[in-house]
Design a protein around this nucleic acid. Sequence first.
DNA 1: TTAGGGTTAG
Length: 658
Amino acid sequence: MDAFALAVGCHSSPTTPFQSPPSPLPRNHRYPRRIPAVSKTLDKPHASTSAASSSSSPATIRPSNSSARRIAIAEVEASTDLDSTLSRVEGILQVQDYNNILCYFGELRRWTEVSQLFDWMQRHEKLNFSSYSSFIKYMGISHNPMKALQAYDSIPDKSLKVNVSICNSLLGCLVKNGRFESSIKLFNQMKDDGLSPDLVTYSTLLSGCRKLKNGYSKAMQLVQELENKGLHMDGVIYGTLLATCASNNLCEEAESYFQQMKDEGCPPNLFHYSSLLNAYSVDGNYVKAEKLVNDMKSSGLVPNKVILTTLLKVYTRGGLFEKSKELLAELEFLGYAEDEMPYCLLMDGLAKAGHIHEAKALFAEMKQKHVKSDGYAHSIMISALCRGGLLKEGRILAKEFEANCNKYDLVMLNTLLRAYCNTGDMDSVMQVLGKMDKLAISPDWNTFHILIKYFCKEKLYHLAYRTIEDMHGRGHQLNEDLCSSLILQLGQSGFPSEAFSVYNMLRYSKRTLCKSIHEKMLDLLVAAGLLKDAYVVMKDNMEWISTSSLDKFAVSFMRSGNINLINDVFKAFHRSRRQINPDIFRAAVSRYLGKPEKTQLLLQLLQWMSRHGYCVDSSSRNLLLKNSHLFGQKQLIAEILSKQHMMSRKLRSQEVKK
DNA sequence: TTAGGGTTAG
């Protein structure tokens, strides 16, 4: 399997499925799914074939004059028509020159040129390991892991594919783009193929643990592995570990790594201090934070923008808003408040502490000062307004963001969705979903949850159902409360099969379920006449279901369920020591009376009853005797019935004696 | 010695 398939295969399509109209849909309407736009053959160069037609000789053979090279590099960098310029100066430049130009474009974030140049380099076989490494790195920065994977798969040389720099770049690219699982799979394959991972490899993977749910234990596994390989942790690895601890709310572990690092003779730098400071911010421990900053200053380090911003975070988390404001003023004075981050920290802290009006004032101040914004401030304020019940204001701010900003990510899209769902603005909800699809941003658990809740609120139960189906298909954990209420609503609105499907998704995705759900499901299926499904629910969950629900099911089943399973229903009742209501036997007998071809089953039931001490009631007995000629087993039936009759008389007299 | 790793916001 190639890296692309390995990394992409385990992921669902990057597009969103939410293109369906919100209005009530026909029941057999298929949920549309768009095929991912990226094709495997797209952009994949064929180096070998194009090299054959290339007339140039390898650049390394040609002695190059360095000033000519410098001029050519400048020409390419300034070119408005890359391909023709590159062809014109071909033969002057060497591989490292192309690499330099690649980095030049990359640092300027000129992604079109980066890709164009790299394509050209591939076609003309002007690349080495650092070309791949750099290109892959830039594809990671530009959020294009697909192109990075394609470039990696296009490497013709097997030994180059396990070059540690290239591997590190690719792993870093995946990690940066939130594909930790893929990066671990790829890492294992790379090792199988002969990669010798180094400290950079491990710190790359470790940095992916930061945003993971149980990131700390994953990090520990990696640390164990690097130590088993005889590698020793360096300052960067410690930095990553401290960041991981801070992100996972593990303050004590962070302190202990900080100490361990110092004990090993590695003096902490600004990265280490800021990570530990960040760990203190979790519970707003400003006493420890201030002491740490003082220690840091004593060691000769000067607090930078990150340190001071993180200290601001500690103050806001600790509820020290006066100190926070003073520190924000200091940051402004030092020129460290040119972007929105410190304002965001304080705004979020204020809003979460219930000071929404102060947060709004700060947001206004920030706008008035023309502070650069990437949308975080809007996101924070929209969320804060929605949380605080100021739904209309939240919607207005969401509209304002969409009108003025064109930068979207998943969190922002979710925030907008929530704002529009809260105010019942269906058109805007659908527009946001369309945007998501266009930008190929995959919905996450939150997206699904917001939508399903909203569709339920709007009584669009079938749409909610299809969204749950999609959510489940993408491997997201389902929310039990939401599913339970949807199951009932689907049942009440004429979609019992869909209700059962939600029930099954829930059952197979969660280990423990609220016990009451089974009875609700059973009632619903019985009411809808879906007795085959009801039978399954009954059999697997009898212990959680009330007698009255079971009886209702059994009577219905005797009347119109699968006749071949009738006896199994009795056995199931018996196995779980549930009393069998005589009405159920009566219903079974009358069902069998209408089906003489099922005599064997009737006989089996009667014999089973005798063995386990059950008797048919007198009216059923009379009915059976009167019709026993129909079954061609007159004698046998009479014998069984008389045995049952005697037994029941014996039992009754025993009870009287007692 | 042309390449790859760690810090702050929703």
